[in-house]
Design a protein around this nucleic acid. Structure first.
Lengths: 350, 350
DNA sequence: TTACAAAGCGAAAACGTTTTCGTGTTAAAA
DNA sequence: TTTTAACACGAAAACGTTTTCGCTTTGTAA
């Protein structure tokens, strides 16, 4: 077991100074062709690689991006990570992941663990608990210490940072308009409680679409689910609530669900109650995961392009990091990028 | 924008030495109660946190674990990460993620990026391309440099490291035995080509189960899919091959699929051909993802307990890291932990 | 009063780099 | 022969810690 070789060891071995070795390896013109070759050969032989930590300390930057997300077992978030990792690697950065598990405390702790020099900047999506408590001091503090943040999907406007979001309102409108165009007359929405920002926005899109087509929204067609972590209890509860919805509103012929799970659950119960998809009930869902594509019937969805969101977020962050390097203190101006959604038609609509 | 405060700044501000500040903060008895309080108050005021990178350099360990997995948009792998992150955080470690995207080159590059001091050890699952090429030099080199590796799920025996695997053979046997017990007479398997180790092992389990019950395996009932990354082309191809399988073997009444996707695709095509699930065709699948639970009919599966695998892998790695600290060179003896699978019965079997 | 121990603190090294600046040697120009 | 410039290299600082060791001051015992 040979430990990693350092400049110092090479220097001693070759009887030159550390500086000489360093310069030789970086092809400095200060070093004679002769010693340069000798050093490089030796370095290659012993498979020398500069120690990243030492470089980070010296350069005061780590070339590492911290990601904080609520959970990773989630198609959307893992797609985003894929996107982040893709451009991060391409631009010479690594990616370190922290999970908040939707908890405020874990979000704070994770950020503190990483903010002490381990990373150059954050890409994150806010935990539900944080959104509920509306306590954002850990974000502002991080930013005040000069560490840039890029938020995606679940964002809050008052934080000064770049943001990448999907146009939830517009996406929801697209979904509902599809149902309207397909002759649905009684369109229900299955959404989350309002404190989840995307749930609120999608509900808003639903209402706007109805309004645009002179349809009066009916409160009984709006089902807001308490969106706890997906325990089995929660699933039972979800099924009950949806079943009530159908039983209380026999005329429902269209459903807009704010996520896949709500959609497939609705379909399952609708079938149990004798409805045929898409003949007597059409369904459109937000979020474009594996369920949409592979369940039967496959779901017509509003695709969020998670990977693209990740790529954009990473580019924004790295751009800012590498811009900060050159000109120091200009007035910071932050960008909010909106990633357009697409309607992907599958079997759950006519 | 106040930069992060360092020991040096505190020292200057309070007109003491850096050493004094450091000791005061760590409650050394060398320091008088008086100055200790002064320093600690000042540090708290300015929200001092030791710089992680500097600590890493000094201690020659980073308290960070590197994970290399083929892809992250995958229920099993993200479950494993959840498990790793859980125990890593609990034990004071961070987690840095690299994706190989099933490519040998990306696997090597990612490992090199991280092995230069950024992390203390690896947890990884081998890329398909690497398995195919059987080139494992990057693993042995890493280990030779004194950096421990824990492999999970896709492992190779000849590498000296701890491993966490599921008993694929036994799991597959459980699945097939369930079908046999449910009176299936013609059980087909949909699996991957043999170079994917888990595919091979599950096929072996299928054969063993048949043999145990004196059933002669029929080559025509064994469908081996070329398991490229899931492009849409690949999906079409998958459907074709499965359709051929059904058409050529009308008597199939049981299917064992090595993953969810194969299972739901098979169900979809079986229905198209007029088969009823589970009445005339029963299906059991490996892997316990979101499709199994929420598609209709839900799938009877062999659950792999991804999170548990991650937790175990992290514990093994950290144990080894913290053991290396104390007694240096004893004979390394490596462990292979087998995580038992469970049969989870749902609607796709009687 | 002298000697000595304890208390309180600082200097410096170490982790592994990069880079600036200084210095000695050699060859070319005066 | 003397001056100068180019060349090749080394010393040292810096990044932010922790820790060992040594030094000064004070109080106490002889």
């Amino acid at each position: 077991m040979k430990r990693k070789v350092t400049l110092k060891q090479i220097a001693k071995e070759l009887d030159v100074s550390i500086s000489t070795v360093s310069k030789a390896l970086r092809n400095s013109i200060e070093i004679s062709e002769d010693t340069r070759q000798k050093v490089q050969a030796f370095a290659k032989l012993y498979n020398y690689r500069p120690n990243n930590i030492a470089l980070s300390l010296k350069n005061r930057k780590t070339k590492t991006i911290g990601i904080i997300i609520p959970e990773i077992v989630h198609h959307f978030f893992s797609k985003v990570i894929t996107g982040i990792e893709l451009v991060a690697n391409k631009r010479g950065y690594n990616v370190i992941v922290g999970l908040s598990n939707e908890s405020f405390d874990k979000e704070v702790i994770n950020m503190q663990m990483l903010a002490n020099g381990s990373i150059d900047g954050f890409i994150l999506s806010i935990a539900k608990e944080t959104l509920q408590q509306q306590d954002y001091h850990h974000f502002t503090e991080t930013i005040n210490q000069g560490m840039p943040i890029v938020m995606f999907d679940r964002v809050v406007n008052e934080i000064p940072c770049d943001k990448v979001i999907v146009d939830d309102v517009k996406g929801a409108k697209k979904a509902v308009e599809k149902l309207i165009a397909n002759d649905c007359k009684n369109i229900a929405i299955i959404t989350t409680k309002d404190y989840v920002s995307v749930g609120k926005l999608r509900t808003q899109g639903y209402l706007e679409a109805l309004e645009d087509h002179k349809i009066n929204p009916k409160a009984s067609l709006i089902l807001k689910i308490e969106d706890k972590l997906l325990s089995d209890d929660h699933l039972d509860n979800l099924e009950n609530e949806i079943e009530q919805l159908f039983k209380a509103n026999k005329s429902i012929d269209g459903i807009f669900a704010v996520n896949e799970l709500y959609a497939v659950t609705a379909i399952k119960l609708a079938r149990k109650l004798g409805l045929e998809i898409p003949k007597s009930l059409q369904v459109v869902s937000f979020s474009d995961g594996v369920l949409s594509k592979h369940s039967t019937p496959s779901l017509t969805t509003i695709s969020q392009h998670g990977q693209q969101i990740g790529e954009k977020a990473a580019d924004l962050l790295i751009n800012r990091l590498e811009l900060d390097e050159t000109d120091d203190e200009e007035e910071e101006v932050y960008e909010t990028v909106v990633i357009e959604t697409d309607l992907i038609e599958r079997e759950s609509t006519k």
